[in-house]
């Protein structure tokens, strides 16, 4: 899997435009879903979208729902931010040190290639289930951020760096005007990909670890008691949460890049 999706020209925007969800297309698939649910006629097998949304609104007004959201959000977002910092720092070190880059390469390759389920089970041995989603989100995001930022750093225009050397431009100015604009598209692409991934992996970890009070626990219970509307309603919640988190984070990231 190639995690590097953006170049200096911000080509990721094209990819995003292609992937934009049109309302009519979404509505079309909801209608297909509703028709299929009506045809099957058994909520336990396929719940109708109307039931899902009714159940979703039932859940939203409960305190338990928000407590579960808060529990999972704190851990998954925490893992993401910690990975963002660690991945960027590691990439910076690797861009200066060949030894660090060579040492990091097998670890990053292993983390990228290993199945998430294997990691979840393995880490469950070492880490209490309460913090499992934090660690898994961290592990999923680190290689993406590391690979992209390292690629960005390695692609910084050497000519501009030489120009900065000749004109004795200060180091803070070099970082602000030469490094950051080059890295920004890579960082944005890394965040855009990893935000979705960390939610998927984090929730999967909670479903396996079943920490009390998490979204994963609610999904697990819905599965055990065959509460299909609950399962779908929680899935809708996770999707909305993931999208909102991604949009808000990328909004602030874009603002920060624009200000630079």
């Amino acid at each position: 899997m190639n995690f590097i999706t953006s170049g200096r020209n911000g080509k990721n925007k094209d990819v995003e435009n292609h992937a934009k969800v049109k309302a009519w297309a979404a509505l079309f698939w909801v209608l297909i879903w509703e028709t299929a649910a009506l045809l099957i006629g058994q909520e336990i097998l396929l719940v109708s979208p109307v039931s899902v949304f009714l159940r979703f609104f039932d859940l939203v007004i409960t305190m338990d729902f928000w407590q579960s959201i808060f529990f999972s959000l704190c851990r998954i977002a925490g893992g993401f931010f910690f990975a963002l910092f660690a991945g960027a720092l590691l990439a910076l070190i690797s861009s200066f040190s060949r030894l660090a880059k060579e040492l990091a390469a097998p670890i990053m390759a292993a983390v990228k290639a290993a199945p998430v389920a294997s990691f979840i089970i393995l880490i469950l041995i070492w880490v209490p289930s309460r913090n499992l989603s934090f660690v898994i989100a961290f592990l999923i995001v680190v290689p993406v951020v590391y690979t992209n930022i390292l690629h960005g750093l390695e692609n910084v225009d050497k000519g501009l760096l030489e120009m900065a050397e000749v004109f004795r431009i200060s180091y803070p100015k070099r970082v602000r005007y030469i490094f950051l604009p080059e890295i920004a598209p890579y960082l944005r692409a890394a965040c855009s990909i990893s935000l979705g991934l960390c939610w998927k992996a984090g929730i999967a970890a909670e479903v396996i670890g079943v920490p009390a009070g998490s979204i994963g626990e609610k999904l697990y219970e819905a599965k055990v008691y065959l509460e299909t509307p609950d399962l779908f309603a929680w899935t809708v919640s996770i999707i909305l949460l993931s999208i909102c988190f991604e949009k808000i984070f990328l909004f602030f990231l874009d603002k920060a890049i624009e200000m630079e």
């Binding site: 000519g159 030489e162 120009m163 000749v166 004109f167 431009i169 200060s170 100015k173 005007y177 030469i178």
Partner: peptide, 27 residues
């Protein structure tokens, strides 16, 4: 102290002419 016109322009493409020149100031 050396100043140089490189074979390539070596300007920050996203900055305007004024900011490219101002970039070398400060120190």
């Amino acid at each position: 102290k050396i100043s140089m016109v490189f074979q390539e322009d070596r300007l920050c493409g996203y900055l305007n002419a004024v900011d490219n020149i101002r970039l070398i100031s400060g120190k």
